[in-house]
Nucleic acid binder design. Structure first.
Lengths: 271, 271
DNA sequence: CTTGACTCTTACACAATGTCAAGGCTTATG
DNA sequence: CATAAGCCTTGACATTGTGTAAGAGTCAAG
């Protein structure tokens, strides 16, 4: 039997974590002295501890480790869990890659130089439009493409004709990092029956909308809002509804993001 | 001027975080109503907010963002910070890669199948050895190679003859995830003068050592300790000093980790 | 005046891990 | 046997960025 410090050196897990794993139900000492509270681990527990370490080093959380250990015999379960975790890690790698891409653009941004072009703000009336729409909660705004794919696939399956100029409508009252409710909609010539997530509806007319167009990838959004915000402040307008973007030239039309043309549209009212 | 909710939608930063950034000194509202406490942001603050978002999305912590903003004009500073962050992110990517590698080995471990081979525990006397040693705090045990490189470079610079059978001595009382104090040492035929981090010393004789050899990469360490622990428990021995490993066949001798042969050595005493 | 939408502050929560403090045990040494 | 050094115990707090909730105040429209 080993005292906690010895077991710690042997397994390379800190005593702090040994106690923590115990509280989380991963591993109990083989024996606890009833009077002193000293923990004693047996050599037979080293394999279990090594599994825990292995799982931890593969990126599993404590809860997940508990689950895996409970189903340790079920090879199929283990295989599935591993596959799921693999996807998760690949995703994390992709996130780090995103950071690198952002980093590369950073020097320009810090100098206040924006790529792409932003046009002047216009005030106009936007007519009502019949659309086919679907919505979803996105992990981040740059995942909007997923919704478009979903909508595109549905339209393909049902042979629905697609007009140009899709809308992205940002429904959340307030931005949430972990989940933004976004609706994507394509104009249709003919309404149909709604079907689950996919609904036909009419986007109402916007009597007074402030609009600004920007060319380039969607991360130009930030620069465009600068202009829009400034215009609203200078001209004394206030928000009167959710912001939306209309794809004038979209990924469907051109491959190069530098060619994209997007119009930001927001209902406003004179203050 | 925009209320916090409007500014939140415009910049895609949650009101929660706007307040948080304010407390951290990144951005103050242009105005705060003295009576109601309501925050008001001006359109002129959107560019600043966009920079903050950009930095955040590139992986900077709030403190780091503050620092970068404070030195925003200093292009050289910005360049250096970006380079440092790039290295950090690449490192994070490497960590995720490590997880993937661990994941790949996981199925075998869960089945209790270890790769490589582990030999029987032996009890023996280990003579004193003259060594050249250096030590360092490692982020993780699999970074031990860094210390060996450091030592090897020093020996090369000073033309010191190197004998086979280097030692890794794990000095920490208790494992710490964030920094394990490890000493690496190579036997030398002739002692010299210590020089900064590099010290000549004599590893004292170990009268009674339990040893176990294992073949294969160093992550076999875990499996080897299982055997060692079991042996100690069954035969009634207890630890009497820090654990060390001796490289019998090391990366210097063979390229394929499967060929490595390592002997774990720990001073013990009969209980 | 009521109601609903917005805002304010404060506090709690997460995950994995370190660190510290106060106090109890153990063991070696004088 | 007494004391000190070193190990062990529990419990609490900190980290980081973000959500959420509670309770109270504000604002604008009907």
């Amino acid at each position: 039997m080993f005292k906690i410090g010895e077991f710690s050196r042997l397994t390379r897990v800190s005593a702090r974590m040994l106690r923590h794993y115990e509280k989380c139900g991963l591993i109990d000492p083989a024996e606890i002295d009833r009077f002193t509270g000293y923990r004693f681990y047996s050599a037979g527990q080293i394999p279990l501890m090594n599994r825990i370490v292995m799982l931890r080093d593969a990126g599993f959380s404590i809860d997940e480790i508990g689950e895996v250990l409970a189903h340790g015999e079920d090879a199929r379960f283990v295989r599935e869990v591993i596959e799921r975790k693999r996807a998760e890690i690949e995703n994390a790698v992709a996130l780090e890659r995103d950071k690198l891409r952002n980093l590369a653009r950073l020097a320009d941004v810090m100098k206040g130089e924006a790529m792409g072009m932003i046009y002047e703000v216009e005030l106009k009336r936007l007519p009502a439009v019949d659309v086919l729409a679907t919505r979803g909660v996105l992990a981040a705004y740059d995942r909007e493409g997923e919704l478009w794919h979903k909508l595109g696939a549905y339209m393909g399956r049902h042979g629905i004709a697609c007009e140009a100029g899709g809308y992205s409508i940002y429904l959340d009252e307030e931005y949430k990092d972990a989940g933004a409710l976004v609706e994507v909609a394509v104009p249709v010539r003919q309404m149909g029956a709604s079907d689950g997530d996919f609904t036909y509806k009419t986007l109402p007319e916007i009597g007074l909308a402030a609009t600004v167009r920007f060319k380039g990838p969607y991360n130009q959004y930030a620069a465009a809002t600068e202009k829009l915000g400034q215009w609203m402040e200078q001209n004394g307008y206030a928000f009167a509804g959710p912001l939306r973007g209309q794809a004038i030239v979209s990924p469907g039309d051109r491959a190069d993001p530098a060619d994209f043309l997007t119009e930001l549209q927001v209902p406003v009212e004179k203050r």
